[in-house]
């Protein structure tokens, strides 16, 4: 009880950080994922390389690369920007795969109708393809959001204060790693179960 009283304020603050970091990464990831998906479908080599790299290299290594290699190249970003940026770029690679899968489910006829009626490719993408595939992509998007919440724990390694980092600090200051990490894990679980619940709830409402 005493532990909780001491731990909760800092942990809740860190929870907020984890949530906004994840939300930003998912939002940027989706926004970047759309053009990457389009480029992948069009067989662009850079897009396929992008997806292959960000899905092939452990996120931990990507974060270290941004942390060490960017300054080496003369790019000096605040650590939080580098970390959230890397998380977003990585998310975009997974999003591109999800979006590409969703696009494959859009019937060709609907796109032909759009073309005949004179919609531009961009209009067709935004007004027809994305909305039609959104419903089918929703479960995968929620899974990806959960993966990002979990992956955001890795940015503790480059010194960003979020849930995991906060738990580490708590563990070393209280000499009680077990409750510290258990609390940390429980908070992640609550965030992710909430996401799952929201996904199911909204999906159910739409079906009705």
């Amino acid at each position: 009880m005493e532990f909780l009283a001491e731990a909760l304020p800092s942990m809740l603050e860190a929870t907020a950080a984890t949530i906004w970091i994840s939300a930003v990464a998912v939002a940027i990831g989706f926004a970047l994922g759309v053009p990457i998906a389009v480029a992948c479908s069009a067989g662009r080599v850079w897009a396929n390389l992008y997806v292959s790299f960000f899905r092939g290299v452990p996120l931990l290594i990507q974060l270290l690369l941004a942390y060490y290699a960017l300054p080496f190249l003369g790019v000096d970003l605040p650590a939080i920007v580098a970390a959230v940026g890397t998380l977003s770029l990585c998310c975009a690679a997974y999003m591109a795969e999800i979006i590409r899968g969703g696009f494959a489910l859009v019937p060709k006829g609907g796109l032909e109708a759009a073309r005949l009626l004179g919609l531009t490719p961009l209009q067709t993408l935004l007004r027809i393809r994305l909305p039609i595939s959104a419903q089918a992509m929703r479960p995968a998007l929620i899974s990806e959001a959960i993966l990002i919440v979990k992956a955001s724990s890795l940015i503790s390694v480059v010194g960003i204060l979020e849930l995991t980092r906060s738990a580490q600090a708590l563990a070393s200051s209280t000499f009680e790693p077990l409750p510290a990490y258990a609390l940390c894990g429980a908070i992640y679980l609550v965030i992710n179960l909430t996401l799952t619940f929201l996904a199911q709830g909204r999906g159910g409402a739409q079906r009705a």
Binding site: I146, T164, P177, L178, Y181, A182, C184, N192
Partner: peptide
Amino acid sequence: VEAVRGVPFLVQCFLLYFGGPFI
């Protein structure tokens, strides 16, 4: 299964490696 899937792998490693000795 839900618990393991909902918690970051890093946190699980910390729990086991640093928390494990206490139990």
